[in-house]
Amino acid sequence: MASLKDLRVRINSVKNTRKITSAMKMVAASKLRRAQEAAEAGRPYAVRMERMLGNLASSVVGTAGAPKLLAGTGKSDVHLIVVMTADRGLCGGFNTNVVRSARQLIRELEAEGKTVKLLCVGRKGRDQLKRDHADKIVQSYEGLARKGADFGNADMVAQKILADFDAGAFDVCTLVYNKFQSAIAQITTRQQIVPFPVPAVTAEANAAPKALYEYEPSEEGILTDLLPKNVAMQVYSSMLENDASEQGARMSAMDNATRNAGDMIKKLTLVYNRTRQAMITKELIEIISGAEAL
């Protein structure tokens, strides 16, 4: 049986932990609000850019001389997986989910005999993948989302991806990140960004007369401008989503931790009081039986 002093120390230490976790929860909650707003505000742009590009792509695809970013290199031997995680832990299954999905993707691709390369954004993803896939990591970034997602940083990552693509280092690029749904639900998402996935032509769209666009300055001119920008934009929007997801995951993880600490304190206090009362009773018995013996 633990002594009274041990129990007191234990209770105090759990109380301190609870203070820390509840403070972290509060911080995450306030960051979440900002990140969520940013993520939701960023969605329209990404959606519209995809729609615009989709329209454009379906009219260009299949024609000779379509840009590589759209048509692909014609093979899919080398895959680049961009693993987007957080720099910090203590956010529940957030990082693990992304890494697990990435690992699974690696296994699937390797089973098909493809070569896989990894680009890690965020320290945690790199640390976890370093164990068994260290040889595949071509580049890793950390500290990018310290002050929330930033377009400049996203652009930097995108430039690296584009430069590698131009150099022929990979054929297909996929992002793995957490899409923000709510503070308690984040969906691990895989999204192919290179080559741009041309939306499947639906029956409805097929029936409707195809909108023939006029292009200013020219089809190629717009595509060469729009495609790299789209890559940057997709990286940016996944960063925004990831940022919001991270804060949401941390908030709920810390909420759980705070609640658990509360439960633990209750249990420990109960044991503490029982032990204290037992000791008092024991002392009383000793005194009484001592007096009786006289």
Binding site: N55, A211, E214, Y215, P217
Partner: peptide, 14 residues
């Protein structure tokens, strides 16, 4: 500059 009115022909521009 270009003006876009309803029923404008579909176009894309930078």
């Amino acid at each position: 500059n270009f003006g876009a009115l309803p029923q404008h022909a579909p176009m894309l521009s930078t």
